[in-house]
Simulated scan of single mutants.
Amino acid sequence: MKDNNDMPGHLARRFQQIAVAVFHAEAEAAGYDLTPVQYAALAAISANPGIDQVTLAGLIAYDRTTITGVVDRLVQKGFIERRASKRDRRARELEITEAGRETLSGIMPAVEAAQRMMLRGLNADESEELLRLLRKAIAAGNELSRAPFREASADVAKTAGRIESDRDG
């Protein structure tokens, strides 16, 4: 029987525990109350203005039913707003607020520090190799996940581009 330290599932779970603990510690030390998933959602909404919750869930590889709670907390914190979609009355579009933009910008040094800390036992080449191998394993197993990663549709990208050009004009 294999030792847990030789099992990829065990190692992935342990690395996830460490990653979450490090993120929380760095964010808290910087004065932010944001979870890793809330950060990922906020960053995705910032990069994709007008995104709907289902697309957001796919972009950050998060369960569709659980994303509602994440969005609710970001709305409560004043970081995003939910708006009725002009294209589909059943859908809700998400927009980052000024407070959300400020938080995203302000927390970046803590996020970057957390990333460095997670890889602190590795040299630069080893870090790159670990990331390459993780991306490869994740891509190969993406469809096995209960919350697979999904690219934003071209329609979302076009809408986001229209929103940006509307703001500029």
Rank of each mutant, 00 (worst) to 15 (best):
residue 1 M to E: 07
residue 3 D to A: 02
residue 3 D to N: 06
residue 4 N to T: 02
residue 5 N to Q: 10
residue 7 M to N: 10
residue 10 H to Y: 15
residue 14 R to C: 03
residue 16 Q to P: 03
residue 16 Q to R: 14
residue 16 Q to S: 14
residue 16 Q to V: 14
residue 20 V to R: 09
residue 21 A to H: 02
residue 22 V to I: 14
residue 29 A to D: 04
residue 29 A to Q: 11
residue 32 Y to N: 05
residue 33 D to I: 09
residue 33 D to K: 02
residue 34 L to N: 00
residue 35 T to A: 12
residue 36 P to Q: 06
residue 36 P to L: 07
residue 37 V to M: 11
residue 38 Q to F: 00
residue 38 Q to P: 04
residue 40 A to C: 05
residue 40 A to L: 05
residue 41 A to G: 03
residue 41 A to W: 00
residue 43 A to S: 14
residue 43 A to G: 05
residue 43 A to Y: 09
residue 44 A to S: 11
residue 45 I to Y: 03
residue 46 S to M: 05
residue 46 S to L: 07
residue 47 A to D: 12
residue 47 A to V: 01
residue 49 P to G: 11
residue 50 G to C: 08
residue 50 G to F: 03
residue 52 D to Y: 02
residue 53 Q to T: 14
residue 54 V to M: 04
residue 55 T to H: 04
residue 56 L to A: 07
residue 57 A to R: 08
residue 58 G to E: 05
residue 60 I to E: 00
residue 60 I to K: 00
residue 61 A to V: 07
residue 62 Y to P: 03
residue 62 Y to N: 08
residue 62 Y to L: 05
residue 64 R to I: 14
residue 64 R to Y: 06
residue 66 T to A: 10
residue 67 I to F: 00
residue 69 G to I: 13
residue 70 V to A: 10
residue 70 V to L: 09
residue 77 K to A: 14
residue 77 K to C: 06
residue 77 K to R: 15
residue 81 E to H: 03
residue 85 S to H: 07
residue 88 D to N: 15
residue 89 R to F: 08
residue 89 R to P: 11
residue 91 A to R: 15
residue 93 E to L: 11
residue 93 E to F: 08
residue 94 L to Y: 00
residue 96 I to C: 06
residue 96 I to A: 10
residue 97 T to G: 03
residue 97 T to C: 07
residue 98 E to F: 12
residue 99 A to V: 01
residue 99 A to M: 05
residue 100 G to T: 06
residue 102 E to M: 10
residue 102 E to H: 02
residue 103 T to I: 12
residue 103 T to N: 10
residue 103 T to R: 15
residue 103 T to V: 15
residue 103 T to F: 06
residue 105 S to I: 14
residue 105 S to D: 10
residue 106 G to F: 07
residue 107 I to A: 04
residue 107 I to V: 14
residue 108 M to K: 15
residue 108 M to H: 12
residue 109 P to M: 12
residue 111 V to M: 08
residue 111 V to C: 01
residue 112 E to S: 13
residue 113 A to Y: 01
residue 114 A to K: 10
residue 118 M to G: 07
residue 120 R to T: 10
residue 122 L to V: 04
residue 125 D to Y: 03
residue 125 D to E: 11
residue 126 E to N: 03
residue 127 S to E: 08
residue 127 S to P: 01
residue 128 E to N: 12
residue 128 E to A: 15
residue 129 E to K: 14
residue 129 E to Y: 10
residue 134 L to Q: 12
residue 135 R to D: 14
residue 135 R to T: 11
residue 137 A to T: 02
residue 138 I to L: 09
residue 139 A to T: 04
residue 139 A to I: 00
residue 140 A to V: 03
residue 140 A to G: 08
residue 140 A to H: 08
residue 141 G to D: 06
residue 141 G to K: 10
residue 143 E to M: 06
residue 144 L to R: 13
residue 145 S to V: 01
residue 147 A to R: 13
residue 150 R to P: 06
residue 151 E to N: 08
residue 152 A to S: 08
residue 152 A to V: 11
residue 153 S to K: 10
residue 154 A to Q: 09
residue 154 A to P: 01
residue 156 V to I: 15
residue 156 V to G: 01
residue 156 V to Y: 00
residue 157 A to L: 14
residue 159 T to G: 09
residue 162 R to S: 10
residue 162 R to I: 15
residue 163 I to R: 14
residue 163 I to T: 13
residue 168 D to S: 15
residue 168 D to C: 09
residue 169 G to E: 07
